[in-house]
Design a protein around this nucleic acid. Structure first.
Lengths: 127, 127
DNA sequence: CGAGCATATACCTATTAAGGTATATGCAAG
DNA sequence: CTTGCATATACCTTAATAGGTATATGCTCG
């Protein structure tokens, strides 16, 4: 993953919002979708874009695809993610996303991973 | 200039190389052209791209257009330029550009601004 | 094995980007 | 006022992006 590719990934608002969310931990597609309030196909395609460029990793958990930032990020990626974090700290859209995520997280007893799989299991247990 | 625009400006190698050079000070088009070894039209168009997005400023000095980074960069821009600097510090292409610029600078007695205007005046004086 | 859920992909359209060639602009020097 | 230099712009072509609609895939559960 080259520096150029990092910037290519970061030059779209939807992708920036996704990356911002993933900094707080892994997420399944449906939760990203819910937080950003965008159509499934849009989210899916942006995640795919990020994945082909090595900006995110995926694993499957039953029906759900769980996306996360690379476990071993390059120095460039680390720098840029930190920079992003710094830049959006006071941006209303990003703050709102982060707040929404925290709220979603609040629905679960433990902290990670957050995904529909867990949501489902949680509600299953609740029943 | 939004954060997205900053990343849009940074997602092309030519533009990254230009921004890297400009971090060392203002430059005229012909010197950028010489250092990057790319056609005039290519450089000019990328500079224009950067300018319309507020990433660079321009002033005319006789025949020459002298480009520089904004005198009052936003916090986001400052962060990202610093991050870029950090990321390319060991990249051979960027290092070579910087070295070439230093060599060019070496041709002049004083340090700034470096541009063809100055080169011309210098040779004129030499004559 | 059939239905349903979460996600991905095919396909289409419109927009933008990147590069090239040719030409125009603006200034300065004679 | 013409020439030359530095730079910008118009115009063209090709490729990449972004978004949408429709459909396919892969898994789970009954």
């Amino acid at each position: 993953m080259s520096l150029i590719q990092i910037y290519q990934c970061m030059c779209d608002e939807t992708r920036l919002r996704i990356l911002n969310l993933l900094q707080a931990g892994e997420l399944c597609v449906c939760h990203v979708q819910e937080i950003l309030n965008e159509p499934q196909v849009k989210i899916s395609k942006h995640l795919s874009y990020l994945k082909t460029r090595g900006m995110v990793e995926v694993r499957r958990e039953a029906n759900w695809m769980i996306y996360s930032l690379p476990t071993r990020p390059s120095r460039e990626l680390k720098s840029n993610l930190a920079c992003l974090q710094d830049c959006v700290a006071e941006d209303p859209v990003f703050r709102r996303d982060t707040a929404k995520l925290a709220k979603l997280r609040g629905k679960f007893t433990d902290t990670s991973p957050i995904c529909c799989a867990k949501a489902n299991r949680a509600t299953a247990v609740a029943k």
